[in-house]
Design a protein around this nucleic acid. Sequence first.
RNA 1: GGAGAGGUGGCUGAGUGGUCGAAAGCGCCGGACUCGAAAUCCGGUGUACGGUUCUCCGUACCGUGGGUUCGAAUCCCACCCUCUCCGCCA
Length: 426
Amino acid sequence: MLDIQLFRKDLAAVAQRLATRNFQLDTARFEALEAERKDIQTRTQELQAKRNALSKQIGAAKGKGEDVSALMAEVGGLGDTLKSLEERLDGIQGELNELLAAIPNLPRADVPAGADAEANVEVRRVGTPRQFDFAPKDHVDLGEGLELLDLATAAKIASSRFALMRGALARLHRALAQFMLDMHTQEHGYEEVYVPYLVNADSLRGTGQLPKFEEDLFKLDNGLYLIPTAEVPVTNIVRDEIIPAENLPIRLVSHTPCFRSEAGSYGRDTRGMIRQHQFDKVELVQLVRPEDSNAALEELTGHAEVILQRLGLPYRVMLLCTGDMGFASSKTYDLEVWLPAQNTYREISSCSNFEAFQARRMQARFRADKGKPELLHTINGSGLAVGRTLVAILENYQNADGSVTIPEVLRPYMGGMEILSTVQTG
RNA sequence: GGAGAGGUGGCUGAGUGGUCGAAAGCGCCGGACUCGAAAUCCGGUGUACGGUUCUCCGUACCGUGGGUUCGAAUCCCACCCUCUCCGCCA
């Protein structure tokens, strides 16, 4: 949510900045609502003040045993007017909030303008894609060839877009998550947190998934939702809290499953594990002072990159343009890993600075000694998406015979295993 | 799932219809005392919104949402949460 003062101060400028991210602000509607709000709020408060004063007089008069019928008559007429005014005020403020809650964040000044992913800017490229002297297979052929990946059975158990992994592949998946957690907790200074995988609507509203993106979520019949990312439960830890400034920054990491309905993406990435209803992710979250958030985004992105570097996976860093950023973000870097079978880079992490956008929705604040509470800034990023990292390892580390070499750094987590092959025992 | 108790300011905790945004204590801030500190004493110390403007004024907020009333922290209804005991269970 953006600060409403921004809209009051310079509506045209805000609308213009929002337009760069393909959002058309209905300025006429805002102005009308705001004018009505001001008028009704003023009148309501005046009447309330009058009623309060008269009621106090009644109390005082009764205490002295005086006759209060005149006062009662005077205040009696206020009731209905006041009630209808209060209802209208509630209605208008509700409308304003709804309008505000559906407006995306403003892009930072250093975000390139552009309508879609075509305008994203490559910031750097790390590692060189391996040259194969055979035709590289994709992760489905590799996993199924090794009899360690079974998408058909997953579809039988649940539906399409779920995976079943067995033996050494299931272990490799677990090893990846462990490796990532160990890196972030031991080398990057994050505290590991274990969080609920179901969250309420207030939490989703806080991080920006609601009210606009309900169709992407799985909702349970008790009103809770499956988390689409650990960002939701982890960031909401500070919802409605005032953090002492000396406790900032707070760096948290959590490994969770993520659930996405993938509504509206039926034709995309239908093959394999790239786009699933359920996938694991290690998520990095930072809660920082406003003046630190820009540097924190760079730092956090670097922490995610280290995972790719240690795994020896080629990748590039993309700075998303205004039109391609997520709803709540003011600046986003995507990390894209090289997938040989697709002969392209694919998103494996998204790191964003939300500035005060989520904090304002969550009322997540900090207090510098003696000062007023102030909204903090939130940053998060995948460090990394585990399923897609597994895909990248299978494809980048495959051998001509269909086996897959296990990256060095993961071997300690695999009981020393060096290769996934059909002759290997899981 | 059953029975009971309870949700009040940073914390503890009083308050069962009328100057209650809320006693008291603790904590914190400022001052006095002191060479300094402790103790003691005095004063201050919530959040948001609106108006006015750097000074105030108003409104709302005592788990949440409704209701009764001229007036609700206080009465009524619904819901949420916490605690204790029992049952069940990883």
